[in-house]
Design a binder for these strands. Sequence first.
DNA 1: CGCGACCTTGATGATGATCAAACAACGTGG
DNA 2: CCACGTTGTTTGATCATCATCAAGGTCGCG
Lengths: 220, 220
Amino acid sequence: MTIAERSFTTTERPQARGKWRSFMSREIVCHQDDPVTDIYRVETGAVMLYQILRDGRRQIVDVLYPGDYFGFGDGTIQDCFAETLMACDVIAWRRDDAFSTVEWCHAFTAAMQRKLGAMHDHVTLLGKKTALERVASFLMRFVPECSGRLCNGAPPADYGRVTHDVYMSRREIADYLGLTLETVSRAISQLKREGMIEAPRPTQIAIKEICRMCKVAALH
Amino acid sequence: MTIAERSFTTTERPQARGKWRSFMSREIVCHQDDPVTDIYRVETGAVMLYQILRDGRRQIVDVLYPGDYFGFGDGTIQDCFAETLMACDVIAWRRDDAFSTVEWCHAFTAAMQRKLGAMHDHVTLLGKKTALERVASFLMRFVPECSGRLCNGAPPADYGRVTHDVYMSRREIADYLGLTLETVSRAISQLKREGMIEAPRPTQIAIKEICRMCKVAALH
DNA sequence: CGCGACCTTGATGATGATCAAACAACGTGG
DNA sequence: CCACGTTGTTTGATCATCATCAAGGTCGCG
């Protein structure tokens, strides 16, 4: 089961007055510069957030999985587009409803702390890592046990046997990692040549040598 | 009055059971990988957050000003060093105390929303902008009215007359913007040559032509 | 089969990193 | 007061990484 396929058990998370909404792949949930009305939480699937500069450059600033919140911008105006990477379920709350209960606030603050830590890691990736390190770091996200600072050095037993679906095109990966699609493609080819990963098809990858990948990714 | 010199009026912000602490310039408030015990809020001054990779590369992931919270990592372990850029006052809460009141949670969630939006902008800067655009964007932070997406096109009346203190060295600016100190220096020199800024000394700048700077920074 | 979308690979070039040296500001001690 | 060392900044010359430009390859589908 991939990260994106996980879903929340509804009992342990507040959802009073929240409205379930389903989206197809590549649907836009909200637009940059739109007013903020609702707050969303991903329940199943995956959503990308991106900003577009006036001259058309696009930066994918985050990729969201179940449990992640989005759609609140700076509190008044959306700072990003939110677009689904696959079929998704999300819960939408009216802003005022959402913040009215204490449990909701707690769930939200916990999610925000996790998210901010992840953003810090991503800033370090963009500011300091080479192309190969970025791509390796990106692929290691599919092994959550080993990609964060929680890693205890023990990879899951079945790693190397599992193939992960990458729901992003080369262009999207590139726009996420601050590279071009050609550079991403070259880096993936290099990791394949060196035997660290396999890719039966472009959108599927299997990580064959976790510890080498981890070193290449400059994760620990 | 600069951003860093602003301070909060204590009445409008919850601080029950919070403990005031004062720091000198360049003191380390908390260490990467330390356990999380307290949550801090900057009251006066400025604090930088940075991560250090195993081979010594440093990325400054954020610069905090009054009203910003820090020190909570992913909830258990610090993900960053926090170091003061100048003399600072902060309030420290025990984690459990902090989240016990509703008002505190509301203040915290509001701050986190602002911060996450700012991080998105910074990710776009790191992922897509050129060296000159990054440096110009950085300097435009000293004119908050014009640097964000709240900008209404009307610069403050006294701009160009005000010199701003940059409490960061060229190396720190570089580590923040994902560049080298030489590249930062060259970009600043270019902006000076073209008359957009003045710099009576390296750590002080005055923005002379806000609208041109804004264009160079690719802000709007 | 042929078209379109996406990916891969190659050749060339530009931006920014690296290496290096000179310069400015500042504090200390003779 | 000035020589000197220290630290940080500026500027120049060269180099490497990644972007750009270009062509060919793979896959799915009408």
